[in-house]
Each structure stands twice: as structure tokens, then as C-alpha cells.
Design a protein around this nucleic acid. Structure first.
Lengths: 185, 185
DNA sequence: TTCTATCGTATCGACTCGATACTATCATTC
DNA sequence: GAATGATAGTATCGAGTCGATACGATAGAA
């Protein structure tokens, strides 16, 4: 199972690279992961539960991590207008600075340069990812406009699941409710 | 930088999968990583320093992790015959059982099945890996017989760096001193 | 209204992790 | 041989992750 060893080792290297860049900001690797996700999450996915699912933690652990990020001033929180249980999280200016400084890690960027085209590599990894997350928790966290529920509405867009209209900038973000289109469309 | 996001997410899923299977044995993900490495490490690499470098930790942290694995009876340690500073680590029968049960993680195995040939994927990942570890700490931890110092000696093998003869089973193991062959050979 | 599911926080104990300090052994140099 | 420096490993400390458990608050359904 050579493929596993390669991915495993790659993950190890990226993690230790993350550890170093996180340390520059007084953070842990998991904090960078959380910031990366929230920087790309749409309005249905910028909440503690979504972070919990994405990072594969329990909600208690995720809550602690997010609390620390808020305390450090990298995240701000605002209550949902309609649902009193929900909290929406946004990167502050400081949070965006940290995110920009650490994503993607410079070493990987350099490494990819020496590889030429990455198109088929990306296709293969995508396939692997889809299979894995089917097993994991069922959530794919895909990009909004590639979703089964994504609809065009005249000149605009809307989500078929919630019925809400979507702004242009939202359709490229990650969504917790994302589902692969039914095959054969 | 789509490639980064894919690898990042893949690493996250594997890690959380590791976390679950580690928990079944009362362990943390890092313990599985250590066992995986030691199960493949040759006689120059089955020591705490090698684990330290491979996992990208500090030696203090690695020492603690290994101590716990010894306390749990998954690793045994024996002093080096020639160098009083060195300690060699071996998986015990219990350690091998845990390793077999958790490597590779079942979900990945299943995911790879639906992918067909993984040859070019592996080639690409290997290239990426080589670049990354050049940046990281310089050590590639490659397989003995692919090393610049690997030599055949009559019917046997030997390491050109230490001058020691190598047994057949050793030449497929990972080595801390591994160096890519000089190009053009 | 009651029941249940969901969202989020608080607390506890085991463990990771880096930093620092320390011991012991080997290698080099004088 | 003795001093010096490099290498291998351990011990301890504080901050933080992490799962488990418990809890409170809101929402939705029966």
C-alpha cells in the first residue's frame, strides 16, 4: 500500500510545516485549519458545528478552539437573526492577515512548481477525497455551485434546499449541505 | 492553489480516521505514526532521534511519546552494542498487532479501490514529497536499496556509508541516512 | 405544551508539544 | 590523557488539544 505511505508522509510534513508557521503567530496547527475553513465557508457553514464537522472533532473541542481564536482577536462572532441557537463566525482583519501569511504553506507552493501540470493529480485526489468523506461523516463540504441543490434564477442564483437567493460571491464558497449532483445529469 | 486544499483536506480526513482507530487502542494519532515508522525502520533508524526527525517533533516530545508506548507494552528498547548513547526500539507482539490493525486505515484502502491505477498518482506524490522534505529538514527517509550509498557485494549487499554488510530483509527498510542517487547514473 | 433534536458552552483528566535544563556517552583536539 | 564540543536521551513545566460528560438555550414537531 504505497499510496497510503506517500499520503501519510505528505500529511506529516505539511503538519509539521503548519506547526512552524502557526507557532510564529502563537497558534497550533488546528487553528490554521479552522481559519482556512472559515475563510471559505458560506453563510450556512460559518458556524461552530460546521467547523466541528469539517475538522472531525467533537463540538466541545471545536468550541474551545474557536473560543481561543476569538480571545486572540482573529475571529468575531455574531448571532443568527432567525435562529437563536446559531452563531456566525467571521475572520477579523487580524485573522485574515494570519490566514494569508500561512495558507498555503510556502514550501508546498515551491514544491508544486517543480511538478508541471497538476491537473490529473488534482483529479485523482478529488476522487480519493470523495470516497473517503463518504465513509467519514457523509459531508463533502464542496463548493456551492457544484451542488445538487444549486439553481440559476433568471440572472441570479439560488439554493434549492433553503430556497434563498445567493449572491455572486457566495457560489464559490464551501457549504456544509453540499451534495454531489445525481449522476447522469 | 487547489492542490493544497485537496491535500490539506485529505490529511484532515486521514488524521481524524487515525484518531478513531487509535482510540480503539487507547492511543493518539501520533502513536500510530510512530509505530508505522518503527515497523519499517532499519537498524540505523530505529532510535528516538530518527523518530524525532521523521515525525517533525522535538526530541523531548518524541521521548515522551515513546516512553508511553513502552509503558503500554507496544515497544521494547535495547541499548546499542557499540554506542552507549543509542537505544534501539522494536515493536513487541502487541505493537505489531496494533500496527496491523490500523495501517493502512480501512477507509483509504476502500477509496483507493475505486481509483483504478495509482501509478502516476504515486509518481506525482513522490515528486512533491521529495521537494517538500528537501525544504523541511533534508532527510528523505527513503528505502535503503534506492540510496546513493547502497552497494552490492558479491552475492550480498552493503552500506557504503558505514561499510557494514546488509541482510536481504534490511534493504527494503527506511533509512535515516538515505540520500537520492546522484542524477545521471 | 410537552417532547425531542440541535446548537453552543463549561469542566475534567489524559495527553501532546515546545522550551529549558540536565546527564551520559562519544569524538576531536590539544 | 584531559579538555572541549557534539550527539543521544530523559525530566519537568505550562499552554493547549481532545473526548467525555454534563448542562443550558432555542427550535420544531407531536
Amino acid at each position: 500500500m504505497k499510496l497510503f505511505e506517500l499520503i501519510d508522509r505528505l500529511g506529516l510534513l505539511l503538519r509539521s510545516s503548519d506547526r512552524r508557521s502557526a507557532a510564529r503567530h502563537g497558534l497550533q496547527p488546528i487553528h490554521l485549519q479552522a481559519l482556512r475553513f472559515l475563510a471559505q465557508a458560506n453563510r450556512y457553514s460559518d458556524t461552530p458545528v460546521a467547523v466541528t464537522e469539517y475538522l472531525g472533532l467533537t463540538k466541545g473541542t471545536a468550541s474551545q478552539t474557536l473560543l481561543l481564536l476569538r480571545k486572540k482577536g482573529l475571529l468575531s462572532a455574531s448571532p443568527d437573526a432567525d435562529d437563536g441557537r446559531k452563531t456566525h463566525l467571521q475572520l477579523t482583519a487580524a485573522g485574515r492577515r494570519v490566514h494569508k501569511d500561512t495558507s498555503p504553506p510556502a514550501p508546498l507552493l515551491a514544491a508544486a512548481k517543480g511538478l508541471g501540470s497538476t491537473a490529473e493529480l488534482e483529479r485523482d485526489l478529488e476522487g480519493l477525497l470523495r470516497e473517503l468523506q463518504r465513509d467519514n461523516d457523509g459531508r463533502s463540504f464542496g463548493i456551492c455551485h457544484t451542488c445538487r441543490h444549486f439553481q440559476t434564477q433568471g440572472a441570479g442564483y439560488q439554493c434549492g434546499l433553503t430556497g434563498e437567493p445567493l449572491r455572486r460571491v457566495e457560489i464559490d464558497l464551501l457549504c456544509r449541505e453540499h451534495e454531489e449532483p445525481v449522476s447522469g445529469s
